[in-house]
């Protein structure tokens, strides 16, 4: 799954009979290693963000996050996500729909292309847009003549973010829709439903949790993207700085407390995303359990 671990924990898997499980010592050693590693690599840095952020007191923290540049970076980040995520949602559904419901030439090429943003470095992704829209780029002179600003402005940031995050929704939906097949859609068609009716009444309800999960992942990456955005943004303070870029600038200027305070904002956004993700996963696992029960009955 695209950049995320989906946990469908079932109690069945945890209840292993004695003959295929390990001794308690092995079990606890493994659990300790996992937890220790997690604490060292994830938890410690996360805590340090907050410690650093509040090191110089609440007032400095508050000042850092209410600083006009920080507020404008937050607004720009949210704005970018607000445009990129719906775009990728529509694209993701359309791509997943096309790939799973039709057979056409170039299908494998499309699947490969969807994975492209994952397989290349985000910096390259940013550079692509510089090559296209930069002053020396393909469309640069034309854009210049018509006074359209793409690079070092919102459109460039949105484009780069959209490019980097476009696999999330499609990647989430393709396996799901493939597993579901077309039986329910065919049933709906034989009962008189047409294209849109089938989509709204049958397809969408079946994929809604997977779709939401894809949107959440896409959103998380859209708000956190650094590399590609860094190349196209131009780092103009208060104008083309997103939150991740703002964190870097502050850090480079040795304003550590301010930098960590702004970083903590991103952490909060991430935590909210994770909470929503957990709720969605919990819901999906209920649906999954229901379906498994259905299959068990059928046989």
């Amino acid at each position: 799954m695209a950049g995320a671990v989906t946990s469908h924990l079932s109690h069945e898997a945890a209840k292993r009979p004695k003959h295929i499980t390990e001794s308690p010592i092995v079990k606890w050693v493994l659990i300790s290693i996992a937890l220790l590693f997690l604490a060292l690599v994830v938890l410690l840095p996360l805590i340090s963000v907050f410690i650093e952020a509040f090191k110089q007191g609440m007032s400095v923290y508050w000042a850092s996050i209410t600083d006009p540049d920080a507020v404008s970076a937050l607004k720009l980040t949210l704005m970018t996500a607000l445009i990129a995520v719906p775009l990728n949602t529509i694209f993701g559904i359309a791509a997943a729909w096309a790939i799973t419901k039709f057979s056409f030439r170039g299908k494998n090429l499309l699947i490969t292309l969807i994975d492209l943003p994952f397989s290349i470095s985000p910096v390259i992704s940013g550079l692509i847009f510089v090559l296209l829209f930069g002053a020396q780029g393909w469309f640069g002179p034309w854009l210049d003549d018509h006074n359209i600003q793409i690079l070092f402005a919102l459109p460039g940031i949105v484009l780069a973010t959209t490019f980097v995050t476009f696999p999330f929704v499609a990647r989430e939906l393709i396996p799901l829709m493939q597993a579901q097949g077309v039986h329910e859609e065919e049933a709906a068609a034989s009962l008189g439903a047409k294209g849109w009716q089938i989509f709204w009444r049958v397809t969408l309800p079946n994929i809604k949790w997977g779709l939401l999960y894809g949107i959440i992942l896409c959103n998380a990456r859209a708000m956190g993207e650094f590399g590609a955005v860094s190349v196209v943004s131009g780092h103009i303070r208060g104008e083309t700085n997103t939150l991740p870029l703002h964190v870097e600038i502050l850090y480079n200027e040795y304003q550590f407390s301010a930098s960590f305070a702004v970083a903590s904002l991103l952490v909060f956004l991430a935590v909210i995303t994770l909470i929503v993700k957990s709720i969605v996963e919990w819901r999906t696992s209920i649906v999954q359990a229901g379906k498994e029960g259905e299959q068990a009955d059928a046989h």
Binding site: H183, E184, E186, A187, A188, S190, L191, G192, A193, Q197, R201, V202, P205, N206, G290, K291, E294, A298
Partner: peptide, 24 residues
């Protein structure tokens, strides 16, 4: 058409499943 695996709409109740063709 009655499908081999029934292809019932998983997210709809029995009532809504039966009513589908008429709702459409």
């Amino acid at each position: 058409f009655v499908f081999q695996n029934y292809a019932l709409f998983k997210h709809m109740s029995v009532y809504d499943n039966i009513a589908f063709g008429l709702t459409i």
